[in-house]
Amino acid sequence: MQLIYKQLRLGFLGLLMLGLLAACQSTPEKKPPFNAEQIAAMTEQGFHQTDEGWELSFTDKLLFEFDAAKLTPPSRSAVQKISAALLKVGINHMRVEGHTDNEGTQDYNIKLSLARANVVAGAMSATGIPRDNIIVKGLGMGKPVASNASKAGQAENRRVTIIVSAP
């Protein structure tokens, strides 16, 4: 009986020591998701940090005509420039979200916004970003950046947003 008691006591002390040693270990320092060069490149291209990651809304660079999902030559050029800048600093994973104004049905606007996101993703892919690394979403008229009460506001809402988040 005494032998069993000693073994139990030694086992308990061993577990206690292991627990104390584990508590003393320091956790590795968490590496920031983006380095200074990547942050500078994103900032230079017009990205800003949000709760979801680094976001670029094309309200001033990439707007779509009413009921269209076609890139104009200047818009295609803007997408290619941004894609090249991201690739240069090793950023090649992102989410592209398409948006619409409030004209049309919700179902139609979801499809149109998805088509817009896919057009931009295709242009990014043509620049060298692997298409499998680009998630596309069609958000329809759900996240306006301007009032749909005016034609100018509606035009601002016909856009695509690119979000780069930590891998």
Rank of each mutant, 00 (worst) to 15 (best):
Q49W: 07
P32D: 11
D60Q: 11
K70E: 13
V96A: 09
F66L: 14
S57V: 13
I110G: 03
L86D: 01
A149D: 15
G14C: 15
P73K: 01
T161W: 06
I39C: 05
R95C: 07
G104Q: 05
E97D: 15
I163M: 01
K111I: 13
F58M: 13
T161F: 04
E103K: 11
K70A: 13
A41F: 00
A69S: 15
M17E: 08
F34N: 03
T72H: 04
E65L: 05
E156K: 13
G14F: 14
E97L: 11
Q45H: 04
H93S: 13
L71F: 03
A23C: 08
Q106C: 07
G53I: 06
M141G: 09
V136S: 06
T127Y: 00
N118F: 09
N133G: 02
A22C: 10
S83P: 01
K137D: 12
S75T: 08
L71V: 07
K137P: 04
P74R: 00
I39D: 04
Q49P: 08
Q25E: 12
E156F: 09
R159A: 03
N148W: 02
T27G: 06
R158L: 09
G122K: 06
G140M: 01
T100M: 09
G11Q: 07
I163D: 00
A123I: 01
D107M: 12
G14T: 14
I162G: 00
E103G: 04
Q45A: 15
L112Q: 11
S125I: 10
G153H: 07
V145G: 05
L20Y: 08
I39V: 15
P74L: 01
G14W: 11
G53F: 08
T59I: 10
K81I: 00
A121N: 05
